[in-house]
Nucleic acid binder design. Structure first.
Length: 808
RNA sequence: GCUUGUGUGGCGAAAUGGCAGACGCAAGGGACUUAAAAUCCCUCGGGGAGGACCCGUACCGGUUCGAGUCCGGUCACAAGCACCA
């Protein structure tokens, strides 16, 4: 069979018949399968795309054959940095390169033979989409979830431009090598922290990989503790957040983040130079470096002091880069005796180390002592446990306004503005008289202008486009300027799943009535690298829109699966620079899409992925040819009925076992084991053909097999299905269901262990009780021999599996 | 560094706490063929003799009648760490 030829034939037929069109009258029976959409990069479809989309299409086809009205759309996450960088390098406009790339990818995705319904395609860079991204931004703005504040960015002083973290290599600009510094800019934020608690709680209700949920929980990073106010000798106040208020009597210094606004004010004149130098040094360190616990602690003394509110002690104020301005209050109390980092810091700078906690059982008393324990040197709190004192001290401080119990989250608000061209313009107008004014909804979209100079020179590219920037204030009608920033592309991808089912609505972002029926997504498939960002942002959007009254569900993706990563043959991540990139085209051209997809499903554990290896691909082709011969043979044999004896019963067992196992495995994305079962079924049919053949029965098995195979190798199965004399598409047929009766066995083989070593096999009737199994085991000759002079003291029987005789 | 995972034959991988290595690749042997390809059959973790038996799921320890699986620790690798998407 010429696989590549039949693929074209069937793809055309599917398209002509609109086989995969979603029937909107059957929304009640919908099953929404969604693969994370693609970024249209310059290269062709990568093995990673095939690995994401191929197996999930198999799942979608299985659900379709299982009677669900499957909705499986596809689209493109088309804004983003790479297209802009490409444009800077080559002069090709991002819009032109992106649309061209999309056209190529569409063609390739179609050639893959996936059952996408292209009628619902989305491209985030088109005005008919980003109009609604802007509309959503405005809703967030109106509900107080979008705001502006100063935030640090990576800044290249030579290129005069903001850099993405990715563009910073070893602390230097990837383009010119200049040392990158951090600089504050006024930026737009979404208040995702308002949903921290619900984002955390919601994780318990969704069917997601545990590891992803664990990552999100830690990312949100809830911790309960207290805020304690320290008053400076200058009269200024600042608070620290701590989970260990019980150690507050042990404070020997406090540290402010170098970016803390009080630093400049507090620093004494003689310390100014040192502090400034230190701040400059900090602006060059990345956050990851700053948080490293193994890095040597650094810091500088401001010369100022504050008062410890619990004991009136005078405490020096330092700055240190292990304190982040973005977490907690941007200040911590230094308790050298009971915190690793504080201990290192105090040791290095010769600060006091005061013990205020000892272990409850008088055990290990070395410092730093970071466990919970009992208070000492803490005045009236001496003798309290950590848990008691943590609350008692803060409550006492609260009476004087010097403290409060507080829950803190590591999660920060989402910085959404970018000083870039190729993104969705922010629909805000800055009016000299009226201030920040949202663009009226009837003026959307704010179109991204085409003719813009986006060479990096220190300004947002749109800022240099006067026709774009100059506008009229919608409130007062006087000249005003547009916001020159664009939105983070994660904003575009935080709601695309809501747009798909109503993709062409030009009146609203989506019709809530439709969306409430079509969502949540029943199965979402994509890379694990999105665990903490995209997947969290999408959840945030869903919850915010629910509170605004547009949605009636809480979570966008009820069930989530991550595919693994296919590595290069050398075991490294595929990259052009390593020269280990595998091009699917070469193999697809030679063996066809079905063989390639089967190989990807069979050769790897789906969630693990692994290194590419070509040899398995040929074996898949051999398997397909073996299947083809089997079907031809069955066609030749005809359908004459014959005897149903032991051979038939045995084959029937394999047949129904295959149906059961393949279906169960497909439900959990265990494609490799499902295909292994299909191979066993084929092997069993070949073995059966060695004896007397009941042609009618064999045909039944072959028919079932072709149906079982269909989701895995759609074109091939269609062809076989046609060979068997069927006219309609195999995807209009139902997936075979298991006849449990065929799986009932009269007897089982069980292993018998003596002292946990297998010594014998026994066969027992299926309905034997534990007592009977034990007796059979003890009566077995091999068991008797193994026991020798030992006497059984205990017999453990696990029905249908094992007997273990414990003997002395 | 922090968070989260992963570690099983020559290779890809399977194993609700219950016979480790299903299914396949590679390799070796055989059948068919003038020959080759294709196809079919057999062997295939290590030691031992092709037996009995012993060892074996990164390493060390623990729980259990029984551990690849659960618990504690160690090592190695991978992903993410907030402007790549």
């Amino acid at each position: 069979m010429n696989f590549t030829e039949i693929e074209k034939k069937w793809q055309k037929r599917w398209e002509d018949e609109k086989l995969y069109s979603f029937d909107t009258s059957k929304r009640d029976n919908k099953y929404y399968v969604l693969e994370m959409f693609s970024y249209p990069s310059g290269a062709k479809l990568h093995v990673g795309h095939w690995y994401n989309y191929g197996p999930s299409d198999t799942f979608a086809r299985f659900m379709r054959m299982s009677g669900k009205e499957v909705f499986q759309p596809m689209g493109f996450d088309a804004f983003g940095l790479p297209a802009e960088n490409y444009a800077i390098k080559t002069g090709i406009h991002p819009k032109d390169s992106t649309l061209k790339n999309i056209a190529t990818m569409e063609k390739q995705l179609k050639a893959m033979g996936a059952s996408f319904d292209w009628d619902y395609e989305i491209k985030t860079c088109m005005p008919d989409y980003y109009k609604w991204t802007q509309w959503l931004f405005l809703q967030f703005y109106k509900h107080g979830l979008a705001y502006r504040k100063e935030a640090p960015v990576n800044w290249c002083p030579s290129c005069n431009t903001v850099l993405a973290n990715e563009q910073v290599v070893d602390g230097c600009c990837e383009r010119c090598g200049t040392t990158v510094v951090r600089k504050n800019l006024t930026q737009w934020f979404f208040k995702i922290t308002a949903y921290a608690e619900e984002l955390l709680a919601g994780l318990d209700k969704i069917d997601w990989p545990e590891k992803t949920k664990a990552m999100q929980r830690n990312w949100i990073g809830k911790s309960t503790g207290g805020e304690i106010v320290f008053t400076c000798e200058s009269g200024d106040k600042f608070s620290v957040f701590t989970t260990r208020a019980d150690t507050v009597f042990g404070v020997s210094y406090v540290i402010l983040a170098p970016e803390h606004p009080l630093v400049d004010k507090l620093t004494t004149p003689e310390r100014k130079a040192e502090i400034e130098a230190y701040k400059l040094a900090c602006s060059k360190a990345t956050e990851i470096e700053r948080l490293s616990t193994s890095r040597e602690k650094t810091g500088a003394f401001t010369g100022a002091y504050c008062i410890n509110p619990v004991n009136g002690k005078r405490v020096p104020i330092w700055i240190g880069d292990y304190v982040l301005y973005s977490y907690g209050t941007g200040a911590v109390m230094g308790v050298a005796a009971h915190d690793e980092r504080d201990y290192d810091f105090a040791k290095k700078f010769g600060l006091d180390i005061v013990r205020v906690i000892r272990s409850a059982d008088g055990g290990d008393d070395s410092l730093p002592y970071c466990e919970h324990g009992v208070l000492v040197n803490s005045g009236k709190y001496d003798g309290m446990t950590t848990d008691e004192a943590k609350v008692a001290i803060v409550k006492d401080l609260e009476k004087n306004g010097n403290g409060a119990l507080k829950t803190n989250y590591r999660l920060r608000d989402w910085l959404i503005s970018r000083q870039r061209y190729w993104g969705c313009p922010i629909p805000i107008i800055h009016c000299p008289h009226c201030g920040e004014v949202p663009v009226p909804e009837d003026q959307l979209p704010v179109e991204l202008p085409y003719d813009v100079d986006f060479a990096p020179d220190g300004k947002s590219p749109l800022l240099k486009c006067e026709p774009f920037m100059n506008t009229i204030c919608p409130v007062c009608g006087r000249p005003a300027r547009r916001d020159p920033d664009t939105l983070d592309t994660f904003v575009c991808s935080s709601w695309y799943f809501l747009r798909y089912p109503d993709a062409h609505n030009d009146k609203q972002a989506f019709d809530p009535e439709i969306i409430n029926k079509m969502l949540p997504v029943d199965k979402y498939i994509g890379g694990a690298e999105h665990a903490c960002m995209h997947l969290l942002y999408a959840r945030f959007f869903t919850k915010a829109l629910r509170d605004m009254g547009y949605l009636n569900f809480d979570e966008p993706f009820s069930s989530l699966v991550h595919q693994g990563v296919i590595l290069g043959p050398d075991g490294n991540r595929m990259s052009k620079s390593k020269g280990n990139v595998i091009s699917p085209d070469e193999y697809v051209g030679k063996y066809g899409s079905d063989a390639f997809r089967l190989y990807l499903m069979f050769g790897f554990s789906y969630v693990e992925g692994g290194p590419w290896n070509t040899s398995g691909l040929e074996s898949i082709v051999r398997f397909m040819e073996r299947v083809e011969r089997l079907v031809k043979k069955s066609v030749d044999l005809g359908t004459k009925n014959g005897e149903y004896g032991k051979a038939e019963k045995d084959l029937d067992f394999v047949r129904h076992n295959t149906i059961k196992r393949a279906s169960d495995d497909l439900k959990v994305f265990s494609f490799n084991t499902a295909i292994a079962r299909l191979m066993e079924f084929v092997n069993a049919m070949y073995k059966y053909m060695d004896g007397n053949i009941n042609a009618a029965f064999l045909r039944e098995c072959v028919e079932d097999f072709v149906l079982l195979l269909a989701p895995f190798a759609p074109h091939f199965a269609e062809e076989l299905h046609e060979m068997l004399g069927h006219r309609e598409s195999v995807f209009k047929r139902a997936y075979p269901t298991c006849n449990e009766k065929a799986l009932v066995r009269d007897e089982y083989e069980m292993a018998v262990q003596v002292n946990s070593r297998v010594k014998a096999k026994i066969v027992v009737p299926a309905d034997a009780d534990n007592k009977a199994i034990e007796e059979t085991a003890l009566a077995d000759d091999a068991v008797k021999t193994a026991l020798g002079t030992l006497r059984p003291v205990k017999v453990i029987v696990i029905p249908k599996r094992i007997v273990n005789i414990v003997a002395k």
